Simulated scan of single mutants.
Amino acid sequence: MNPVRRWPLHPQPSLLESLSSWLDRLACLYEMPVKDLLTRNLGLVDLDVPADLDYDPPMAGLTALAERTGVELARLRAMTLAGWEPWLFDKLTVPIQATQPMFDAYVRDNSVLLAPGEAGTNQVNRWKRWPGPWLGYWPLHRACPVCAADPGRGRTLLWRLPLMTGCVEHGFRLEDATAVELQVTLGGEGPAPVPLEEPLATVDRYTYEGLTTGRVTLPGRSVHAGVWFRLLRCLLDEVSLSLSGRSSHGRATLEQVWQAAGREERAGLTTWRPYEHLEPSVQEAMLHAAGTALQLVADGTVIAFGRLASTLRREHRHVYDGDRPSPHRSSWQEAMAEMEAALVLARTDRDAARQLLILLTLGCRTLDRFEEERAFLFGVGVPAEFIPSARELGRTDLV
Rank of each mutant, 00 (worst) to 15 (best):
P3G: 08
V4W: 02
R6E: 07
P8M: 10
H10F: 08
L16N: 12
L19G: 09
L19Q: 07
C28L: 11
M32T: 14
L37H: 06
L44T: 05
V45D: 14
D48R: 15
V49S: 01
D56S: 13
T69H: 08
E72V: 01
L73C: 04
L73Q: 06
L81Y: 14
L81Q: 10
E85W: 00
D90R: 15
K91I: 10
L92D: 01
P95W: 07
A98Q: 15
Q100W: 07
F103T: 00
A105K: 12
R108H: 04
L113Y: 06
L114M: 05
A115Q: 11
T121Y: 07
T121P: 02
Q123T: 10
Q123E: 10
V124C: 06
W127H: 12
K128M: 11
P133Y: 06
L135F: 04
G136W: 08
Y137D: 06
H141S: 10
R142K: 12
C144W: 02
V146R: 11
P151F: 04
L157W: 09
C167G: 08
A177T: 07
T178W: 10
V180G: 06
T185Q: 14
G187Q: 01
E189P: 00
E198Q: 12
T212A: 09
T212F: 04
G214P: 01
S222Q: 15
H224F: 11
G226Y: 03
W228N: 03
C234T: 15
L235F: 04
L243P: 00
S247Q: 10
E255L: 14
V257K: 11
V257G: 07
Q259D: 11
Q259I: 10
A261H: 07
G262S: 10
R263E: 15
R266G: 01
H277K: 13
V282S: 05
A285V: 00
M286H: 15
L287E: 01
G291Q: 01
A293R: 04
D299H: 12
A304F: 01
A304K: 01
G306D: 03
L312N: 07
L312I: 10
H316I: 11
R317W: 12
G322W: 09
R324V: 14
R324C: 11
S326V: 08
H328V: 13
R329F: 08
R329K: 13
A341Q: 14
T348A: 11
D349A: 05
I358Q: 15
T361K: 08
V382M: 05
V382L: 10
P383G: 06
A384G: 11
R395C: 11
R395F: 13
T396Q: 13
